[in-house]
Each structure stands twice: as structure tokens, then as C-alpha cells.
Simulated assay, not measured.
Amino acid sequence: MDSRGIITSDLIFASILILMVIGSILTIITERLDAVSKTEETGKARMIAENVAEIINNVYSGGNGHSANISLPANITDKNYEIKINSSGVFVLIDGMIGKAYVAPNKFSSSDLFKETSICMHNNRKYLIKNVADEDGNNWIIITET
């Protein structure tokens, strides 16, 4: 056999093997970076949920007539999000992931009609959160866009 032909086939085999190893390493790195990005989004969503829950709890503990304004951030890592609030807590939804925070009050409404609803808040908007007592003396958290 020709000695040059053996070296060439070994070189081709080694090159293919190295390319396969590099390709698999790049795939692993890409997956890790995606996981880090999703962790960052979830962390920021949780911080927004905690902030909204803290304001709601402060308004609730302030008693009847207490209110506060909140301005929501424009986005989370350049992605839109929405906040859902109900008696179970505050939920920030972004890209199929959820950040959650608990709240003390359990009666929420989007109007002074005291109809219990799930409230939806959107990014880059301002809201008024107020504590209002109904005719039976029950405290309601009313959230309206301003």
C-alpha cells in the first residue's frame, strides 16, 4: 500500500471525529445558555410578582380607603408578559413559564361592583390598587388601569 494513502485516510478519520466532538460540545453549550436565559426570565418574573404582591398586601393592610399606584416594567428580557391576580396569588406569565407570589387578601375585582374576578395586568401600563369595603364590611382589592 501507498504510505501517503494511509496517512490521508487517518487524517480524514481524525478530522471527522474532531468535528463530531466539537459539534456535540457546541450543542451542550447552546442548551446550557438557553437554560440560563430561561432561569433569568423566571427570576425576573418572580421579582415582578413579589413586587405586585407586596403592594397589594400593603394596600390591604392599610385598611379601607388605602390605595397605591404601580407602573409595570416594559418587558422581561425583551419579551412581553402578563400578570394574573386572583385569590390564589399573583402569577406572572412569560413564554409558558410562571412566576408566583402569594397575597393576603382573597377578594379581587376590576370594578367597584365587587364582582370577584381574576384580574389581568399587562406590561408597560399603570394601575391603581385600592382597598374598598363593601356594604357588609368585607374588604376588596380593586385594581383598575389608569
Rank of each mutant, 00 (worst) to 15 (best):
N57Y: 08
E82D: 08
N51W: 14
A68L: 12
K79C: 05
N80R: 08
N51P: 00
V52L: 05
N64I: 13
N75L: 01
N69P: 02
E54W: 07
N80V: 15
A74L: 09
P73T: 13
E82S: 12
S61T: 14
G63D: 00
Y60D: 00
A53P: 00
S67K: 03
N80T: 13
I56Q: 02
D78L: 04
V59Y: 03
N58Y: 13
N58P: 04
N51H: 11
G62I: 05
Y60I: 11
G62N: 06
N58D: 15
G63S: 10
V52A: 03
A53M: 01
Y60N: 05
L72T: 05
P73M: 11
P73H: 10
N64K: 14
L72Q: 03
I70R: 04
I70E: 00
A74N: 06
I70T: 01
I55G: 03
S71I: 15
N51D: 14
V59H: 03
P73R: 08
G63P: 00
V52H: 02
S67M: 02
I56A: 00
A74C: 03
L72M: 04
N69F: 14
V59L: 04
H66S: 14
G62K: 05
S61N: 13
I56D: 00
E82R: 15
G62Q: 06
I70Y: 00
S61E: 14
A53F: 03
P73W: 12
Y81Q: 07
I55D: 01
V52W: 01
G63V: 08
E82C: 06
N51I: 03
A74K: 12
H66L: 04
G65D: 02
I56R: 02
E82G: 03
T77A: 12
G62S: 06
G65Y: 14
I70C: 01
E50K: 11
Y81G: 03
Y81D: 01
P73N: 11
